[in-house]
Design a protein around this nucleic acid. Sequence first.
RNA 1: GCAUCUGUAGCUCAGCUGGAUAGAGCACUGGCUUCCGAAGCCAGGUGUCGCAGGUUCGAAUCCUGUCAGGUGCACCA
Length: 592
Amino acid sequence: MKKIAEQIAEELKKAFAECGYEERFGMVTVSNRPDLCQYQCNGAMAAAKQYKKAPIMIANEIVEKCAGNPMFAKFEAVMPGFINITLANRFVSKALAGMAAEEKLGVSTGKPQTVIVDYGGANVAKPLHVGHLRSAVIGESVKRMKRFMGNKVIGDVHLGDWGLQMGLIIEELRDRKPELVYFDENYTGEYPAEAPFTISELEEIYPAASAKSKEDEAFKERAHRATVLLQSGNPAFTALWKHIMAVSLADLRKNYDNLNVHFDLWKGESDAQPYIPDMIEDLCSRGIAYESQGALVVDIAQESDTKELPPCIVRKSDGAAIYATSDLATILEREKLYQPDQYIYLADKRQELHFTQVFRTARKAGYVKPETRMDYIGFGTMNGKDGKPFKTRQGGVLRLEYLLKDVEDAVFERIQENRTVDEDEAHKTAKMIGLAAIKYGDLSNQAAKDYVFDVDRFASFEGNTGPYILYTMVRIKSILAKYQEQSGKTADTSALAAEEDRAYSASEVELMLAAARFADTIERAADELAPHKICQYIYELSNAFNSFYHENKILAQEDAAKQAQWIALISLVLRVLNVCIDLLGFEAPDRM
RNA sequence: GCAUCUGUAGCUCAGCUGGAUAGAGCACUGGCUUCCGAAGCCAGGUGUCGCAGGUUCGAAUCCUGUCAGGUGCACCA
């Protein structure tokens, strides 16, 4: 089904063409003056220059051409050359009925592509902290949007599981439990299946080891050696590494589940290791990489650059792999396994240079096809109320778990103030609302910008917040439930299209138009990888619903046809909101 | 130093592929509940869109310069 704006544009393009102008001038946008019209076309002013004619004259010709078209209730030219369009209500209601009949509510999906979303970026053996929030939240939303658009999307957490932290943990463990068989060089038997530590021990071991390495040079050196040994396949350390992985992954999975973030792949840097030797060999033999100051590098400078870009280092002068090495090797693996049409990486915006280097190297070496899209979403920092990077009162990094708990508790308090639901349900609801508050708070900002995380603001949930959206949805659910209880009927989408013309209130028309903008909004947000556009949209839609709600008594409406249409309308609105919050990565309770 | 991002109401943010009177929320003020959830709705004031030039019929939006802040500039991830 065609979207409303498309259908209008089609008429206008036809009119422009028939009047002897290029059709591209028939572009239509939502009006920026809702007091004057619903949609507008500024093409006459753009065309004026090319055809050396007064814009208003062109606009008048178009208006004349479209006169009598039943689609429009009002269609007029206004100085200096705007074409103002107001639709016939019957046309809008019919469009809504068409939208409701489709599974994806009118979104056109296009040819499915394989998309890899690389987000999360957790480090094994280190707890998730607030710095991991944005990647998880934005990445999850981007993944869901791309999937909704009909693509085959693979979300990969891409763990940091191969770095120095492993050596640190191994050596710290040696100091604490030297009797373990992993540290007995003469041991030749099987290594135990049971991990020699629990998650809480592991959580304590890493920070301790990290701190020690900063003061104790010898320890640091041991950790480096252990890391090298692990990376070269030492059986004892490999066995330990597997334990660390298993224990840590279970915990990470739990934490991401709590965030309603779900990965399709739990790959990590270690998975790319087997590809590295051949890749280095290949880059060298084809002369793409060369030695510079002891390191192996690839030039990535291009003529169009406004600055001098340093080459991409693919092997350090000590022979070890580096960030870029493993990212490139990961691309090789992904090409082999999935042949993606698009890569989307999420990382802090400070890593932009790194991704430029990796992308260019991958293209230069021909590891990805020229037409493969490679996108990097660099996101800003989450700041505290002081405008500086978010810290605990003690100045440390706050664990994600605790942040979730804080918000959940604040929400719980708030729920208790208003309503008396039983404690168990209140806790469940608080969890849902808290997550919505956090995610909406994050996603409603442009990803690239820094933003201020203010627990009090989110916990008070007034205005443009996740809880406000949820509140609106709960309200609709409540009305629909009462309607069913009273009448025994459920919403009937066929009632959306009015059989005969009747008077519509302004707020009703507003709500209809807002609902009709769904498909355009989603397509654009998915294309631009911009979840904040969805937030903006559902806020407008919620406002439109709440205004409508206050102006019209739905359940008390005596005209049965009108009531059926209203019920169908609000249930469509609820459906739209449900899809949207799902794309943002949270859910609505039935009551709150 | 070079590059890059940001600068919009008291605060937090939209708007930026050029269009009409620059929008929300918070905060502040006043109204709205015999009736569908008042976590709501309605009404009210707030702006040198950092500054200065330029392009254009038209600029918060594009270009140049400039100021302020953030960030990045080869062997960390």
